[in-house]
């Protein structure tokens, strides 16, 4: 198929996905953006959030951590520190992580050294919950 786009999702532990898809939606720093085959070359950093792509007419969701996406006309390489497929996510654990982070955040103020870290943890938990909700 001429309009297929090759994507590769690479994490430090493994290559999370490698294959041809129809379309991919990426949580970029400047906002979410979609990529089809023939996109102009682009290098964008990613936010903690949900990455999704359509393969064989089916949309798959991944909760991703910070990283970047390298887009060329025929290939997208996503490099992220973690990527979890939505149906592999343990919702209970994500919910607990979210509750814990929220509780800790409510006790600190913004000048705290750990504030940014906890906030990132909260973002990750929310992204994972959202991704899990969107599967099936």
């Amino acid at each position: 198929m001429a309009d297929e786009l090759l994507i590769e999702i690479v994490t430090p532990e493994k290559i999370a996905f490698n294959g041809a898809v129809e379309e991919i939606t990426i949580p970029g720093t400047e906002g979410e953006f979609g990529v089809l085959r023939g996109h102009a070359p682009l290098l964008s950093s990613l936010e903690i959030g949900i990455l999704s792509f359509v393969k064989d007419g089916k949309r798959m969701f991944y909760a991703v951590n910070t990283g970047y996406a390298e887009v060329t006309t025929s290939k997208v390489t996503i490099l992220v520190e973690t990527a979890e497929r939505s149906d592999m996510i343990d919702k209970g654990r994500a919910q607990r992580a979210k509750d814990r982070a929220e509780e800790e955040l409510s006790k600190m103020d913004k000048s705290d050294m750990d504030y940014e870290n906890i906030r990132a943890a909260l973002m990750r938990a929310i992204a994972r919950l959202n991704a899990a909700d969107r599967s099936n």
Partner: peptide, 27 residues
């Protein structure tokens, strides 16, 4: 090298990648 569109700017991107570089080295 391919000329990319950088999002956000190339400097801002580098600033984000450098801590990741430290992660890579430590890992």
């Amino acid at each position: 090298r391919l000329d990319y569109i950088y999002e956000p700017s190339d400097e801002a991107l580098l600033e984000r990648l450098l801590p990741m570089y430290v992660h890579v080295l430590l890992f």
